[in-house]
Nucleic acid binder design. Structure first.
Length: 492
RNA sequence: GGUCGCGUGGCCGAGCGGUUAGGCAGAGGUCUGCAAAACCUCGUACACCAGUUCGAAUCUGGUCGCGACCUCCA
């Protein structure tokens, strides 16, 4: 199997990937909290992990991809549960809220052509296991109960295990100082950096369960520790999430797992970077935000036109997952053209044939093909991998135009190109050909007739008729291109 | 305030000690009835200042600017 290198947040180094069990990979990614419509930033993160999942499958691994749905315990600043807030706002039962936005999330991820995870567990389905882990943490001496809530003892944990803050680069002494002001209204905690693993519920709280400590609900960080352990084991291969989750969420997750099982949950931690818009983080409060639907319809002051899901996805893949990605109209416009050129080349490629008389140009084709995989093996470098695809676009077009002699590549090489090029685009990068999708059989027949008539006019040098047909079609968003071997058309 | 990261040609965006990133836009050319498309050629960019080095966008220090996290966020 090809060597794969990953940038590991835990060690802050790029490392050769070694799975725990040869040929198998366990991957856990923190999923969304389903209390409102999906944010575009979520979309980028989950597209990034989908690409990783797809590529690992392509390399031949058997991957168990677990991505949770957070449906309890994720609190707002004022301490209110996000789901409860959504329930109040929409006048729904909490579980109706969860279902509504889970459905919406799935629909959006389908629109962006991502795979569903192998397992998609919900926090509320794992209350028993969460209670068990809380008990384990208490038994190991890292949890303490106060007024019905249970807290994780970060100071004791750090004194014994010396690893609190390793993932996020925090120093526990600083954490104690920094959050001192917040201590006043959280006096149940021994130390300000301690965090709740079980919370006693107020009487009006909508979602609560019985436990040895109180009628309450689990802490947000706990659910991921529990569900990753349940489905992937105490130690698994890859844990992912947005880099805004590094602290406190992932740091606390590590602490809980080490505290409960005395082992690191994941060998490799991967963090995706944020999606920006016009150079600033997307934020609802200052209007610097855009929804997927607004992008699809063009209904936003930030963009000049509508963009299709695949164009948006292609735009995102042109930057590396660990870099910020700045969503700007010019960038989207450029991505749209590049994406179309890629799709056109795919169509052109399907029609190429070679006699295989020579093989002088074989490496021109196999080189970029090989390099695509090499780049992807280098921490999923999609921008560089896509650059290799464009090298091939030029080759494909040159073969078609006759600028390069197609008979100078072997039958096998052309066959490989015709198999791998579309495979990399659709299977590895998950890009669908939206241009093709707009066509249908009936239109195909009509267009053939129209182009035949126009060809007759051209043969008679009747440019007036010929141009009239072309202009009228352009009005209907159909672009006619006159090539050497007749005319072709595409939907614009 | 603390921690971390970033500043690349008109725009997006890779690279992270010597070798063309790539896409889009722009200029010239080939082809074509014209156009479009396609192909070929082209710009010689790395915030600023100082240092290390035979050699720096890439390493070190400083300056300025931006961002993320520290409190809910993918």
């Amino acid at each position: 199997m090809k060597e794969l290198y990953l940038q590991n947040s835990l060690t802050k180094k790029k490392e050769l990937f070694k799975p725990i069990t040869e040929g198998f990979i366990g991957m856990y990614v923190c999923g969304p909290t389903v209390y409102s419509d999906v944010h575009l930033g979520n979309v980028r993160t989950f597209i990034s992990f989908d690409i990783m999942y797809r590529f690992l499958l392509h390399l031949g691994y058997k991957v168990r991809y677990v991505r949770n749905i957070t449906d309890v315990g994720h609190l707002l600043d004022d301490g209110e549960d996000r789901i409860s807030k959504g329930a109040r706002a929409d006048k729904l039962e909490p579980m109706e809220v969860v279902q509504k936005y889970t459905n919406g999330f799935h629909k959006m991820m389908d629109i962006f052509n991502t795979h569903r995870p192998s397992i998609e567990p919900r926090a509320t389905q794992h209350i028993l296991e969460q209670i068990e882990m809380v008990q384990q943490i208490i038994d190991n001496g890292y949890g303490y109960e106060a007024n019905g809530s249970v807290y994780f003892d970060t100071l004791k944990f750090h004194e014994e295990k010396k690893c609190y803050g390793k993932l996020s680069g925090r120093v526990i002494d600083e954490l104690l100082v920094e959050t001192r002001d917040n201590l006043k209204n959280q006096s149940d905690k021994k130390h300000p950096s301690d965090f709740a693993i079980w919370m006693k519920a107020a009487p009006e709280h909508l979602m609560k369960w019985n436990s040895p400590w109180s009628v309450g609900f689990p802490g947000w960080h706990l659910e991921c520790s529990v569900m990753s352990t349940k489905y992937l084991g105490e130690t698994f291969d890859i844990h992912g999430g947005g880099n805004d989750l590094k602290f406190p969420h992932h740091e606390n997750e590590v602490a809980q797992n080490v505290g409960a099982c005395n082992c690191q949950p994941a060998n490799y931690w991967l963090h995706t970077n944020m999606l920006l818009m016009n150079g600033r983080k997307m934020s609802k409060s200052d209007g610097n935000t855009i929804t997927p639907d607004q992008l699809f319809t063009g209904d936003s002051p930030h963009i000049t036109k509508a963009y299709s899901p695949m164009v948006i996805k292609f735009f995102m893949l042109q930057s590396h997952y660990s870099s910020t990605n700045d969503l700007v109209d010019d960038g989207l416009l450029a991505a749209e053209k590049g994406y179309r050129r890629l799709m056109e080349a795919q169509k052109t490629l399907a029609e190429l044939q070679t006699t295989g008389a020579g093989n002088e140009l074989d490496t021109d084709v196999t080189g970029p093909l090989d390099k695509f995989i090499t780049e992807m093996c280098d921490d999923f470098n999609t921008p560089r991998a896509i650059a290799q695809l464009f090298e091939l676009v030029t080759k494909i077009n040159s073969f078609k135009e006759g600028h390069l002699d197609i008979n100078k590549i072997s039958v096998d090489t052309l066959a490989r190109l015709q198999k791998d090029f579309p495979c990399y685009i659709s299977k590895v990068l998950g890009l669908k050909n939206e241009i093709e999708a707009g066509n249908n059989g009936e239109l195909e027949g009509v267009m053939q007739l129209v182009l035949d008539l126009r060809q007759d006019a051209r043969a008679n040098k009747n440019w007036a008729i010929s141009d009239k047909i072309r202009d009228a079609l352009a009005e209907a968003k159909i672009v006619v291109k006159d090539g050497k071997d007749g005319s072709s058309w595409t939907m614009n």
